[in-house]
């Protein structure tokens, strides 16, 4: 009779319960921490905000302007914004996609926008100029090269992502 009752001793019972409750509490603490720790790894996959902009065979050695629209939520404003890029192939056959926003005060630059400089980007506001590779022409108002878009190509289509400052030469 006492043998049967001894199957779970008081000591064992307490051990099991304490381990169980302790484990539960530990899990309760660890789960959020682990989730927070791996969260950055999970994020970028959801944000790959690339937009189809042009067909690869449209892109020539001469910079061309491509426009596309995307939805943007900016604080209170939910809007469809039109973005633009100057896209061309350089001498090494690499695709270059430059942002048209002047680094001086934010006007729109255009390729060959001035008759005097047919092979430069020109800003109509204060005569800022950039070479074909986006570098600012020294002595003109802009102090930095044009931003360059991140891009990827898939099945003959060019996708553009975010515009990144090029940095480097002042």
């Amino acid at each position: 009779m006492s043998e049967k009752k001894q199957q779970v001793s008081r000591r064992q019972f307490l051990n099991y319960t304490l381990t169980g409750v302790g484990g539960f509490m530990a899990a309760g603490m660890l789960a959020p921490m682990v989730r927070f720790a791996i969260d950055p790894v999970l994020q970028p996959a959801a944000q790959g905000n690339y937009q189809a902009v042009a067909q690869l065979d449209e892109i020539t050695n001469e910079p061309q302007r491509f426009d596309w629209t995307m939805d943007q939520v900016d604080g209170w404003y939910e809007s469809t914004v039109t973005k633009s890029a100057w896209v061309y192939r350089n001498d090494n056959d690499e695709i270059i996609a430059l942002s048209p926003v002047c680094k001086h005060l934010g006007c729109f630059v255009s390729w060959a926008g001035s008759e005097d400089y047919p092979d430069q980007f020109f800003c109509p506001c204060h005569d800022g100029r950039y070479f074909k590779d986006g570098e600012n022409v020294p002595g003109t108002p802009p102090a930095a090269p044009l931003d360059e878009y991140e891009f990827k190509t898939e099945e003959g289509t060019l996708y553009l992502g975010k515009a990144k400052p090029k940095g480097g030469v002042i």
Binding site: C102, G106, P124, C125, H126
Partner: peptide, 8 residues
Amino acid sequence: IEKQFKGR
């Protein structure tokens, strides 16, 4: 117009 000539 503002977008094009933001700086001026």
